[in-house]
Design a protein around this nucleic acid. Structure first.
Lengths: 344, 344
DNA sequence: ATGAAAGCGCTAACAT
DNA sequence: ATGTTAGCGCTTTCAT
C-alpha cells in the first residue's frame, strides 16, 4: 500500500510536461483544452497530445483541484445555508426533500454540494465570511426570519437563491401557499365542515403567514368559521385549550383541524390516538406538505403536497444562472396538489 | 445593492496591508496568527495588530479560502462517497442517519461536508481523480461490493474510512451484526418460535452476509429451523413463495419472519396488511436497523437498533485522525440493542 | 518588531 | 505548433 503522507508527491503538470518533453502550457492545453475562445485544436499536434495524455496516465496525474479553483476563481461547489441552527436534520421529511433536491440539482450541473458544519457557535460575521470566502460558487439559502446572515447575503456578491420563504433582495423559489390553502378550504367546505381549528406556527415567517391568511380568507368566502391555535412548535402536542375544544360542547366544537404543516398534523394524530379521539369520525385532520416516508404511516393524511424537492432543484438551477451572469426572476412559485387521504 | 460581478473586487490581504501601512506578512500574521511553532505573539506589537484588525473590518476583508487552501494544502472539507449510485437519497432512514452523522462529525471538527454530484455517468478513473484531486482532505466511504473506486482508494494517499461494511485495506466502522443477530435469535427462541423465515439481501455484501450467517448459527444453537428467502431487493414485496409458505399447511409454516433490514420488514408488514395476514397473531415480524421516522408508523417493529449516526460520526473522527497522521484501528465495531416492539 | 523574496499548481496573454 | 512570462492570494523562510 502507498504511504498516506499527503498529496505532496502526486505528480504535477510540470512533471507530466517534463516526462513528455514539452512545456507545461502545452501539457495543460493537451489535457484540458484551452479555456478561452481559442483557435480550435490546431494548437497542439495530435501526436504530441496523445503522447502527453499517455504520459499523464502513466504517471497517474490528476490535476490539483485547488490550484485549478485558485486560477479559475471557480470551485464547482454549491453551498447550502440554513438559518435554522447548524444541523440540517435529514430525518425531517422537509429537509430530506431539500437535501435530495440539492443533490439532484448539483448533479445536473456537475457541481458538488457543500453542507456547512460548525456554524453553531459562530458570529454572524464569521458565518458570513465563511460563506463569501470563495470556497463556493453559489448558495442556496433556507432563510429563517430576520436572519442577519441572510440580510448580509442580500448585499453580497455571492450568487444566492432563497427557498421556501421569500427574502427581499434575493431570488426566491416557493410553493403556492395561497393556492394550496384555497384548495383545502374549498375541499373542506364541500365536505360540509363549518368550524375549523387552524394550527399555525409560533414563529412569524412568510410562508406560514401566507398559508394562514389565505386560508382564513378562503374560509370566510365559504362561510367557514376558523379558530386559530398556536401550539408550542417544538413538540406540536395537543394543547389544553385544543383538548378542551375537541371535548367541549358540540355546538362550538370544530369538525376539522387544519395544520399549517404535516408534522404538526401527525403529532396531533398521535395525541388523538392517545386520548381516544377517533379520526376522522370525531375530528377530521388535514395538513400541508405531503410528507412521504418509507415507513407506512398510521393514517394516510389529507394534505396539500408541496414539491420541496423540485423547489430546491429549481433553486440550484437559478444559482447556476446567476453564476453565469444571467438574469433570473425574483420569484418563482411552484404549484401544489391536494392529496385526499383518509383523515379528512 | 452591490453588483454581483464576482469576488474579484473583494479586498485582499495586500489591500488591508496597504491601507494599514504595513507589509502583507504583518497583516497575515496579525489576522490569523503564525502557523508554525512561532515565537508567540511578540511578532507584532499590540497597537499594529489592532490597527490591522480594524482596517480589515472596515474594508470588509474576508480571506480567500481557495488561496488559503492552495497555500496550506488543506481545504477543511470532508467528502462522502457512496458506491450505491450517485444519489444519496436522504429519505431512506439509513442514509438520513449517515448524513446526520457526517454533519455532526464535521461540525465537531469544524470541517465542511462535500456531497459529490454528477458521478453517475463517470468512469472509475474520473471519479477517482475527482476524489483525490485535493478538493477534500479526507473521505468517508460507503462501499458497495467490488466497487473499483473503493479498490483504488485503498491504495491512494487520501485519508479514507469505510462505514457499514469492512473493506480490506481501509479502516472501517461497522455495527455488531453478529451480536445483533444472536440477540434476535435468542429472543425469538425464548418466545417459543421454532420455525423462522429469514429474508436476506440479494446482493452479496459483508454486513448482510454476517447477519445471515450468525443468525443461522445462533438459530441452530437454539433449535430454530430457518428457511432463507431472497425477495427482490428493490421492492421487497412478498414473493409468491413467501405467500405460499405463510398460507400453507400449519406444520411447515414459519411463526416469525426475520428481515435483514427494517425497510424489508416494513414492506412485508404492508403486504401482510394487504393480504389480511395479522401481525403478530398469524406471523411475527422482526427487522434490523431501528428505523425511526417522524411519522408514527403502522406498527412498532421489533428490531435490532444499529447506531448508524454514531458509526458515521466515528468514521469522521477517524478520518480526522488520519489527516493528522495518527494511527487508527483497522476495525471499529459499535454495539447494537434489541428493541422489542409489538410485531414479535 | 517588521520587511522582502520565493513559491504552492495552474492558465491567459503574449511571444516565437 | 510550441515556449516564455506573469500572476492569482497567501504563508514560510530568511533577512533586517
Amino acid at each position: 500500500m502507498s504511504d498516506k503522507k499527503g498529496r505532496d508527491n502526486q505528480p504535477t503538470l510540470d512533471d507530466v510536461a517534463k516526462a513528455a518533453g514539452v512545456n507545461r502550457v502545452t501539457a495543460s492545453i493537451a489535457l484540458r483544452g484551452p479555456r478561452p475562445g481559442a483557435r480550435g485544436g490546431t494548437r497542439i499536434s495530435e501526436a504530441t497530445r496523445q503522447r502527453i495524455i499517455e504520459t499523464a496516465r502513466e504517471l497517474g496525474y490528476a490535476p490539483n483541484a485547488i490550484a485549478l479553483a485558485f486560477r479559475r476563481q471557480r470551485t464547482d461547489l454549491i453551498g447550502f445555508y440554513t438559518g435554522y441552527g447548524n444541523a440540517v436534520d435529514p430525518h425531517l421529511p422537509f429537509m430530506a426533500d431539500v437535501l435530495h433536491g440539492l443533490q439532484q440539482g448539483c448533479a445536473r450541473h456537475q457541481q458538488d454540494l457543500v453542507i456547512y458544519g460548525g456554524f453553531a457557535r459562530h458570529s454572524t460575521n464569521e458565518i458570513y465570511s465563511a460563506l463569501v470566502s470563495g470556497k463556493i460558487d453559489g448558495l442556496v439559502v433556507l432563510p429563517s426570519p430576520q436572519n442577519p446572515v441572510v440580510e448580509k447575503l442580500v448585499h453580497s456578491y455571492l450568487p444566492a437563491v432563497a427557498i421556501a420563504n421569500t427574502v427581499a433582495g434575493l431570488p426566491s423559489v416557493t410553493v403556492d401557499d395561497i393556492g394550496g390553502s384555497q384548495l383545502l378550504a374549498t375541499y373542506l367546505a364541500r365536505k360540509g365542515h363549518r368550524r375549523v381549528l387552524y394550527r399555525t406556527d409560533t414563529v412569524d415567517h412568510v410562508s406560514p403567514g401566507l398559508r394562514r391568511r389565505s386560508f382564513l380568507q378562503a374560509a370566510a368566502a365559504h362561510d367557514l368559521e376558523v379558530i386559530v391555535s398556536l401550539p408550542e412548535s417544538s413538540s406540536d402536542t395537543m394543547t389544553a385549550a385544543e383538548h378542551a375544544l375537541l371535548t367541549g360542547p358540540l355546538h362550538q366544537r370544530p369538525s376539522v383541524v387544519v395544520c399549517w404543516v404535516d408534522t404538526s398534523a401527525y403529532a396531533f394524530l398521535a395525541d388523538c390516538a392517545h386520548y381516544g379521539i377517533r379520526v376522522p369520525e370525531d375530528i377530521a385532520v388535514a395538513g400541508f406538505d405531503g410528507i412521504v416516508g418509507v415507513v407506512p404511516p398510521l393514517y394516510r393524511l389529507t394534505t396539500v403536497r408541496a414539491p420541496w424537492r423540485a423547489v430546491t432543484e429549481c433553486a440550484v438551477d437559478l444559482v447556476m444562472q446567476l453564476i453565469e451572469n444571467h438574469k433570473v426572476p425574483p420569484e418563482t412559485t411552484l404549484p401544489v396538489e391536494l392529496i385526499v387521504g383518509e383523515t379528512a
